[in-house]
Every structure is written in C-alpha cells, then in structure tokens.
C-alpha cells in the first residue's frame, strides 16, 4: 500500500464532485459528526423496495480522509443491497481506499462507515415502525 494520502489520484477523488451533493428524495439521511476535529458530513441514500441502494451522496465540511473515504464508500454502495452494506467492515473500507492510515486518522476514515451503519439502522427502524403500524390497523 502507498502511504501517501495526498498522492495525485486521491487528490482527484478529493476534488471530484461525483458522489458529492444532495439527493432530491432520499429514503434516509444522517448527519455524522466527529466532535474531535469538527468534521460534519451528511450521507443520503435512495433505497428501492427490494432493499437495493439505488443512489448515494455525501456532503459537508471535512478533511481529505473523510471526504475520500466517503467518496469511495458512496461509489461502491450504489447498486448493492443493504444486506451487503451492513456487512462492510473498517478493513473493507481501508482496502477500497488503498492507504495505510496512522491511528489518529483512522477515525476520520471510519466516520462515513459509522454514518452508513446509522443510516441503515434509521431506515430499518422507520420501516418496521410503519409495518407495525400497518399490522395494528
């Protein structure tokens, strides 16, 4: 693995707008904060009836590690099922980015992953609530 976080190809991802921005009608969104460094990213997902992530975007003010890992994560998630997303680990994410992070920066990289897990939790909670309501009716 290349240790240089600021190498050209990653800087391109950092500056790219491909997965950045906001979705018009997201199925779920979360605002993930890293109080230690003041980072804040918003993650949005569009999820189909059969549990497939059809679109994903992120936005916010964050460091390059957060931005790059969010960009890779979002890009990788589109077209995958939420079951697949649930199983993603920190190691998977590191593999995607292809860099060795020092301990102090690992938190920045996993911010998006934590956001993803929270978003899925929120999505499924919301769904089971409406299902329960429907059942009760």
């Amino acid at each position: 693995m290349d240790d240089n976080l600021y190498r050209e190809e990653l800087m391109e991802v950092y500056k790219s707008t491909k997965n950045r921005g906001t979705l018009v009608s997201p199925s779920v969104e979360v605002l993930e904060k890293n109080p230690l460094c003041g980072d804040q990213i918003k993650l949005q997902f569009e999820i189909s009836e059969d549990g497939i992530i059809t679109d994903a975007k992120f936005d916010g003010s964050a460091c390059a590690v957060s931005v790059i890992s969010s960009a890779y994560l979002m890009d990788n998630l589109v077209g995958k099922s939420i079951e697949h997303a649930k199983k993603l680990t920190k190691e998977d994410l590191m593999g995607l980015i292809g860099i060795n992070l020092t301990t102090s920066r690992v938190k920045c990289a996993t911010l998006a992953l934590e956001g993803l897990k929270n978003a899925i939790g929120k999505y499924e909670n919301g769904k089971s609530n409406t299902e329960n309501k429907n059942k009760n009716r």
């Binding site: 976080l5 600021y6 460094c37 980072d39 460091c63 390059a64 590690v65 920066r105 920045c108």
Partner: peptide
C-alpha cells in the same frame, strides 16, 4: 482546507 490535512502534509 481542513486543519488535519495541513497537519498531515
């Protein structure tokens, strides 16, 4: 530019 990036570089 985020301060962590400045510090890393």
């Amino acid at each position: 530019i985020h301060s962590h990036d400045v510090a890393s570089i």
